[in-house]
Amino acid sequence: MTDSRSDFTAERRPVVLVPGLSGAASKDFSFLSPMLARRHDVTVVPFDDVDASSTLGDLADRIHVVVERCAQQPAVIGYSLGAVAAVAYAAAHPSGASSLTLVAGWLTPSAKLRGFADVWRVLHAEGSPALPGMAMNALFSADGWDSARPPLISDVSDALTALSATADVAALASAVTVPVLVVGCALDEVATTRQSKLLFGALANARYAEVHSGHAVVHERPAELLNLINAFLTRPALFPAGSLILEERP
């Protein structure tokens, strides 16, 4: 992938970050946000006060509010449930975002994702000390274990975890027309790699890249993710819709 020199010196363009199950960019985008801010104006959609009554549509509305505040069409980057919310947003507002990057997202909640949400709910209700370890085992891959840390219970929102089990955009995907980069994770046993690939299959203007990581790709391989995102933001159409983007081997 190549950038032109002007891309490094060009006017800063807006980027909107949509977090995953933590609901907070400071937790999900602790690396990506400051590094993207070197070349872009970064704004974050807060999900940390989402409650149990919220729907996927509510999350999409929150994205809409932030996008409306941008001076120009932003690129929207969603991670995990944030990726699913970004699809719902783009389906409702086809001309809102300039592009979508969907990291470790899904089309339909897989059985494993629903299982993760169930176990989370039960262990949390019991106050179980096994909860952080269970979450770490599910979210991180064996290959990314060096970066793994047991998530603080406060790092994962109950409401968002419950919502993820029902967040389904299969019926909305055909309304999304903007350029999309789908980033799947080869070792993702939560969203599941297949569900990320189904997003790629369902979104007309999508291209697909894969990172050798578990669901917690923002912690396991943040620099590789940054490379993919920067390349896509710089030239969204470099890889035509339908492309499988080969892994860059250093």
């Binding site: 602790s30 690396f31 400051p34 590094m35 070197r38 290959d143 060096d146 970066s147 050798h212 391989r221 943040p222 620099a223 590789e224 892994e247 081997r249 250093p250």
Partner: peptide, 25 residues
């Protein structure tokens, strides 16, 4: 072997966040 090299490379890349002056890093 190729996967190991990739893993080492992208892990090393993360340290640039420090050089870029990111306060948390």
């Amino acid at each position: 072997l190729a996967r190991l090299r990739s893993q080492l490379f992208w892990k090393a890349e993360e340290a640039f966040a420090q050089r870029a002056g990111n306060p948390d890093s």
